[in-house]
Amino acid sequence: MQIFLEYSALGIAAGGVYALIALGFVVIFKASQTFNFAMGEMMMVSAYVYFMCVVLMGWNWMVGLAVTIAVSVLIALVMERLILRPMLGRPIISLVMVTFGAGIMMRGIASIIWGSDTDQMPSFLSRDPVMLGELFIPGKTARAFAVAVAVVVGLVLYFRYSRAGVALRATAADQTTSFAMGINVHRIFAMTWVIAAISGAISGILMASINSLSPSLGLVALNVLAVVILGGMDSIGGVLVAGLIVGWLEAVTGYLLGSEWRDITPYIAALLVLLTRPHGLFGTKPIERI
């Protein structure tokens, strides 16, 4: 039982980063009804940028973080401008396919530049374990959870109370009307990409610090995409909770069935949710307007 609880705590802690990644998916989905399949690769590239700044250049971690976020935002804006914007008005599956293609391309380029072997990230997170009563949680995971939660809270608050956040929610509700109300829809789209880039940069660095750094780091985002379904796409709170649930499921199935089961757990969970609650655990059935 003690071990089970420890795995549970570990899983929920890992789920914090998933929630942060999921947030990146949801903001873009809200504004443009598209899954950004390049999310994982945005994380991966960010992690490499941070690695280069801190390890190869030997910069202070805060400088590294600032540079990483800047580069990540730049990449996201370039993608939004060069790849997504020309596709506006096209069928949604084309938009999804184009982000998917962009992601594959980024992974290929990263492997060419940095090689497909794994690198070890320097630990800016302390390794000292955190004790939660009787429960032992590895230091990096616990601290990554804290960082992820802080960023998630910050972004959600921004989303809720800032002018831009209100405009974003209005755009999500009704694009045409928002446009008529003088909201610059293009700016809003760009802004969702910036938010996704920030959550991608931080979650990428966290993921690489907990595990290790390789061009396939981004694959974890696909697991998280399944999570987004679990939460129901229209509910940010739901998606965040789903992130924690999946982190927990992965850890527990890994413990109970063996580590090879970990990676397919989110997908099995997603299929089960689709089967039983098609609009997600927390989502609502949309009113169809024809």
């Binding site: 790849i83 020309p86 596709m87 096209r90 084309s94 396919m97 184009v98 998917f100 293609g101 962009a102 992601g103 594959i104 391309m105 980024m106 992974r107 290929g108 380029i109 990263a110 492997s111 060419i112 090689g115 497909s116 061009p215």
Partner: peptide, 24 residues
């Protein structure tokens, strides 16, 4: 041997993006 697989990924991805944008 090391470059071939990532190069394939890069080119497959690039083709998907370019064709979707310029020659749907």
């Amino acid at each position: 041997t090391k470059v071939l697989v990532p190069l394939r990924e890069t080119v497959f991805g690039l083709l998907i993006v370019l064709f979707l944008i310029f020659a749907p």
